[in-house]
C-alpha cells in the first residue's frame, strides 16, 4: 500500500527534532504541523514575517492581519515575534532556520530541486521557495513519486527549471523516504507492501536500498 497524503505528512513530522525552527511550505507541508509528536516542540517560521506561528484560529479569534505565507488565517503563540520581510529572509538565508519542508515537482539525485514553474503550464512565481531551498539548514521535499502519466519525478537530472541546486536532503513520497546521494538516491524506508522493484521502476535514477 502506498502512503496517503496524510501518511506522508505524518512521516514528515517525525523528521522534526525537539527545538527545531521549521518553515513549512504551502499545501501538504503546512499539514505536517498537525502531526508533530507531543514531546517535540517546534517553532514555526512563516516567511511573511512571523516566528512562533500557532494553529488556525477558533472562529471568534480570526484576525485578518495574522496570516501565514499561504495567506491563511493563523494565530501567534506565546514567545512569538513579528518582523519585516528583509529580516525574515535574513533568518532564512543566514542559516538560522533548521529545516524547510517544501512541495516539489522534481528532485534530482544530486539534490537539485524544481518546484516553482512548469514552462507554458504553471506560472505562479517562486515566492520564497528559492531562498528557503538555498538557505534552510535541512531541506525536505514532499511530493508524488511519479506524475499523472507515470513519468518519474525523482530523476537523474532536472527537466524543469531549477529552484535551487544541490539543496534537497530528503524526499518523502507515497512510496517511501529517499535521500539525495549524488548520482543516486538512497531509499531509507519503503511504504508497507511497496516492493524494491516498484520503487526502482518508478524512479528516474539509480536507487540504493538499505
Amino acid at each position: 500500500m502506498t502512503w496517503s497524503r496524510e501518511e506522508i505528512a505524518r512521516r514528515a513530522a517525525r523528521e522534526l527534532a525537539d527545538g527545531d525552527v521549521a518553515n513549512l511550505g504551502i499545501g501538504l507541508p503546512t499539514e505536517v504541523a498537525n502531526y508533530v509528536p507531543p514531546d517535540v516542540s517546534v517553532v514555526l517560521h512563516s516567511e511573511n514575517g512571523l516566528l512562533g506561528m500557532g494553529p488556525f484560529p477558533f472562529e471568534d479569534q480570526i484576525d485578518p492581519q495574522i496570516i501565514n505565507a499561504g495567506k491563511q488565517t493563523v494565530t501567534v503563540l506565546p514567545g512569538a515575534s513579528a518582523f519585516d520581510s528583509a529580516l525574515s529572509f535574513a533568518m532564512i538565508r543566514g542559516g538560522h532556520v533548521d529545516v524547510a519542508i517544501l512541495g516539489g515537482l522534481e528532485v534530482a539525485a544530486n539534490g537539485d530541486l524544481a518546484n516553482w514553474t512548469v514552462p507554458g503550464k504553471l506560472v505562479t512565481g517562486m515566492g520564497g521557495a528559492m531562498d528557503l531551498a538555498k538557505g534552510a539548514r535541512r531541506v525536505l521535499v514532499l511530493q508524488t513519486h511519479v506524475s499523472k502519466d507515470g513519468t518519474p519525478k525523482l530523476v537523474g537530472r532536472l527537466t524543469l527549471p531549477a529552484t535551487a541546486l544541490a539543496c534537497v536532503h530528503r524526499v518523502l513520497t507515497e512510496l517511501g523516504v529517499f535521500d539525495c546521494a549524488g548520482d543516486h538516491f538512497v531509499c531509507v524506508e519503503r511504504a508497507t507492501g511497496v516492493s524494491e522493484e516498484e520503487v526502482a521502476r518508478s524512479t528516474g535514477a539509480r536507487v540504493v536500498f538499505r
Binding site: 494553529p55 484560529p57 477558533f58 485578518p64 491563511q72 488565517t73 493563523v74
Partner: peptide, 9 residues
C-alpha cells in the same frame, strides 16, 4: 482588512 483564506479549527 480582506481575508484570502479564512481558515479555522
Amino acid at each position: 482588512n480582506l481575508i484570502e483564506h479564512r481558515t479555522t479549527r
